[in-house]
Write a protein that binds this DNA or RNA. Structure first.
Lengths: 154, 154
DNA sequence: CGCACGGCTGGGCAGTCTGCCCGTTCCCTT
DNA sequence: AAGGGAACGGGCAGACTGCCCAGCCGTGCG
């Protein structure tokens, strides 16, 4: 992970259509170098994938919320996670420390729809309580650019 | 947004290297159709980008945490957001309702490093308190597949 | 009822890029 | 000093892209 890796990632982040040849030209390195770097970055898992990133807002789901769920600890998290994963509006599920046991990121078509989604979530005998925080503004939306440079320079 | 759109997104999600021609072959439609659908999906903003997805874990940041920050409301969220955005380990910032004013997703190299990141976050006169929940397990990591199908069938 | 419109189809074109090969050079480590 | 890894420049066939066209079909409108 060096500066060239970071610049390659930067370039493909800002302009994914640039292609390997275009990247090599803009970066002033040989094409094979960019190719090898990209292969290694994917092999090491740094680049997870080139999958298209979907915007729920454009799909008609402009409402985002974070819910912390308190669950019955008897049988572990697995059954609850299975129940939650079956709900399309559930985008992320994480086990966390502190108050509540799970944090869940959900989207909805509107505020009323959010109510429906929450009802679906707590419709499980293992879910004891849900605490919902609606997202008002997203000031930063999963950027990793600075992190990549930080990892490259260290 | 119909079933074909959803299948195209599915295909490019599971195999981003498939290409337009390959997708048209696998889906049994004309190449121009796939091309037009992709163009429209990007134009409408449904597909935000084809940027490479970075895995902080592979970069040496295996620790994830969610922090809710309580901030001094005097001058709005802007100055605090600027301060937080300057920290590379901060990946997301959202204004939320409920207890706390901001929710921040951060990563760190280890638990001690997380302490450093939190110290950097609260090193701002506008930040009154931080409440951190460490992420133990990620059961679902920002999947949008089911949501796309849900939007397509409705 | 007829017609225009948008979308899908199949085909074709030149241009470009990809994946892979080679030999060479440079630098770091052993 | 020797070895290995990485980058370089070049080249090859193959495949893909972006863009064009004409034709067909279903929908909606006048």
């Amino acid at each position: 992970m060096d500066a060239l890796d970071a610049r390659i990632i930067d370039l493909f982040t800002t302009d994914p259509q640039v292609g390997i040849l275009g990247a090599s030209r803009r970066l002033g390195v040989a094409r094979g170098t960019v190719q090898a770097r990209l292969d290694r970055l994917q092999e090491r898992g740094v680049i997870k994938s080139f999958a298209p990133q979907i915007d729920p807002r454009a799909l008609g789901y402009p409402v985002t919320a974070f819910c912390t769920l308190e669950i019955r600890q008897r049988q572990g998290h697995a059954p609850v996670v299975a129940h939650l994963a079956a709900i399309p509006e559930v985008l992320e599920i994480h086990s966390i420390t502190g108050v509540g046991d799970l944090i869940v990121r959900v989207v909805a078509r509107d505020n009323a729809d959010l109510g429906r989604v929450i009802d679906e979530m707590i419709d499980d005998v293992h879910v004891l309580r849900a605490n919902t925080s609606m997202c008002l503004v997203s000031h930063l939306d999963h950027r990793t650019g600075p992190l990549v440079h930080s990892a490259a320079s260290s």
